[in-house]
Design a binder for these strands. Structure first.
Lengths: 250, 250
DNA sequence: AAGTGGTCTAGACCACCTT
DNA sequence: AGGTGGTCTAGACCACTTC
């Protein structure tokens, strides 16, 4: 047995995927609903197992569906967190005892784990921006509703923060930025460079990402009023969990 | 014949993929180099065709490799365009006869095609933001170095722009924003909402995206000094072609 | 126990690109 | 002409979830 004599214009697996996608986008299948399984597709379309799998893999890699072992394939949910770029770093927030993250979650509970604080020799990129090869590095993972959503790696010039609360697990009220202020180095200007890409394997593990989920990689540099860089923060966000907002004037 | 009696901890296809990824990330395989093909992998690891394919599909879906029919699988190249968020919309640019895009490409040649200008009834989202259901819509596609990189759909309130150059293909020097200025509605404030996701099929076609490429979707609203929204621009960027930069103060 | 997705084999024909 | 990736079939065993 072989495939039909005249190969159809579009492959079978793609037409099956198109039908399922249409059902999802039209709302016929809703968030969390179960898609037809491999066996159902095999029966309905008269195709082999691998073909049914291939159709489902299209939707999975498009981020529209999520497979659950031993259970089924389900329509993916999208309930993003709104992250304000410009506004949320307004001095009013962190100078009044609020950590930056508070402005992001809008009251939704969040947790921090996988915290690591180390003194390291910085990568070339970071060293060039900070003008300092020796840095203190704060790594952590943020979770909202029990699900990991962001990885963050902050770099501070070692000679600037040595012996301060910034190198301790609890940075105190207002977080690291307030401590920089205590030192007379309040961040006054920020640059964020942002790109989107598919996650690296270790990011897939730490953020518990299903296939088809891009990440947003942000590299933020904080400068004092006189233009001295005081922090480089590399963030990796689960793209399915975020909407980023930037406000600015002409 | 079946698989080895004690299933290895990590699947074979994944270990093959890990090895190839390591070769790419370490620089052993460079941009544009050819990866071992399906036949080479079958021979080297003693696996079936589908398993070799699965290994390659991992890298393709991670955006690290690009398949070329009848030729091979190649290491993906990343040569992004830098797009400035806040800075590039500074009045100095578009008020002096420069279109916004100029600031993005930094002299690299770009082309515009797939231009469509229509009067439509807006989607609910756009209508709510603009406060106008009837809109003029400008659609176009931007390409750099002959490769499409961005889709853009601008919405203007119909009663505001009716009869102006904004509804013609050539908007004149300075582009649509300069024409809004002529009308006494210069954009003064912008909000950009941004998310990353996998592309829809029609975006995959128009942007000629290989598998494993996310897109960055930006919805930008332009407001005049008195807070009146005058444009909603929905952009879809090939994430592999862009680095976005935002600058702002605390 | 039954059903599900995850992995794997061993074939096949095809369109396409390179040589 | 030969090699490449693209599609497809028909099986198999497994771990896992659900009932």
């Amino acid at each position: 047995m072989q495939q039909s004599p005249v190969p159809p214009e579009t492959p079978i697996y793609r037409r099956i995927a198109d039908g399922l996608r249409e059902a999802i986008l039209s709302g016929e299948l809703r968030d969390g609903d179960r898609l037809p399984g491999e066996n159902a597709i095999m029966a309905q379309y008269g195709v082999a197992r691998a073909t049914a799998r291939q159709a489902l893999s299209v939707l999975i890699n498009e981020g529209l569906a999520v497979p659950k072992r031993g259970s089924g394939v389900y329509v993916r949910q999208f309930r993003p967190i709104r992250r304000h770029g410009s506004r949320r770093l307004a001095q009013g927030h962190w100078s009044q005892g609020q950590a930056i993250w508070d402005a992001d979650t809008r009251g939704r509970p969040y947790t921090v784990d996988e915290v690591q604080i180390d003194r390291e020799t910085a990568d070339d990129d970071v060293a060039r921006v900070l003008g300092s090869a020796e840095v203190w590095v704060r790594r952590r993972r943020y979770s909202v509703d029990g699900r990991p959503v962001q990885l963050s790696v902050s770099h501070f010039p070692a000679d600037l923060v040595e012996g301060t609360a910034i190198v301790r697990e609890d940075t105190g009220p207002g977080g690291a930025y307030a401590r920089l202020g205590d030192l007379g180095h309040s961040p006054a200007h920020f640059t964020e460079e942002l790109r989107a890409r598919m996650p690296h394997p270790h990011e897939t593990v730490l953020l518990d990402l299903p296939a088809g989920t891009p990440v947003i990689a942000i590299m933020r540099t904080a400068y004092t009023a006189d233009g001295t860089p005081v922090e480089v923060n590399e963030m990796v966000l689960d793209a399915a969990s975020y909407v980023l907002q930037y406000d600015f004037d002409a």
